[in-house]
Amino acid sequence: MEKRYWSLLLMGALLGTTACQNGNKQTTEDQSTTIETPVKTEETKLIVDSLTDDKGNKLNLTFDNTAGTATVVFGQDTIHMTQDTTASGIQYSNENYTFTEHQAEAILTKNGTVVFFKSK
């Protein structure tokens, strides 16, 4: 009886150890699969938006996040700008225009003069 008891105990221990190892192995494989899942694509990221200020002026915006550029259509003008580095918000500019957006305020200036202002 005692011999049978020890045999069953040993088999149970081995079975439990094997099951735990397989369970850990499965988890490890799942984790490595999850890590490798994100796929990087080289697609151009375009964002199209439009804003209308309190005066009824409309600003059509197209942002190309891959190239770091923005195209703004304001009235009869089509304005091409490049992205500037900012701590927060966004800013695009060229030699005459600057477009900034920060905390729901969008401002377009021409040679330092505000020509478009939209606040939430």
Rank of each mutant, 00 (worst) to 15 (best):
T44W: 08
E105D: 11
I107G: 09
S50T: 13
Q76F: 11
D53I: 04
G75M: 05
E101Q: 13
D77T: 09
L108A: 03
L108T: 15
T85Q: 13
L61Q: 10
H80W: 07
N111C: 01
T71Y: 13
T113M: 11
F117M: 13
T78V: 07
I79Q: 06
T85D: 09
N111V: 02
L59C: 08
A104V: 10
S88K: 11
S88D: 07
G56D: 03
A87W: 11
E101F: 12
T109C: 03
T113K: 15
D64L: 01
A104Y: 13
G89Q: 00
I107A: 04
I107T: 15
K118M: 08
L51C: 10
T78P: 05
N96I: 02
I107K: 14
D84G: 13
F74D: 07
T71W: 06
K58F: 12
E105A: 08
T78Q: 08
D64E: 03
K118F: 11
Y92L: 06
E95P: 01
S88Q: 13
L51H: 10
T52E: 15
E105C: 05
N96T: 12
A70F: 02
T85K: 15
A67P: 07
T44K: 14
D53S: 01
F74L: 05
A67G: 02
F117I: 10
F99T: 05
A87Q: 14
K118G: 05
T85W: 12
V114E: 15
N111H: 11
Y97V: 00
L51G: 10
V72I: 15
N94H: 00
I79W: 04
S119W: 05
V48L: 14
A70K: 01
N96H: 14
T113L: 13
K55W: 06
G68V: 05
D84P: 07
N60P: 08
L59G: 05
T109M: 09
G112V: 09
V114A: 12
I47W: 02
T98W: 06
T86W: 04
N60E: 15
Y97M: 03
Y92M: 02
D84V: 10
D49E: 13
V73L: 13
G112I: 03
T66Q: 06
G56A: 02
A104M: 14
T44R: 15
L108C: 02
D64I: 06
H80N: 14
S50D: 14
D54P: 04
N111D: 11
E101C: 12
V114Y: 04
V72D: 03
N96E: 10
L61G: 06
K118V: 02
S93F: 03
T100S: 04
Q83M: 13
L108R: 01
T62E: 13
N111I: 08
K55N: 14
F116D: 04
T78W: 03
N111L: 09
G112Q: 01
T109R: 07
N60G: 10
Y97E: 10
T78H: 05
T98C: 00
S93V: 03
H80L: 09
F74M: 03
T113G: 12
Q76V: 08
K45G: 07
I47Q: 14
V48N: 14
T86E: 09
D77H: 06
G68N: 02
N65W: 10
I107C: 05
S93T: 06
A87I: 11
D53A: 01
T109A: 08
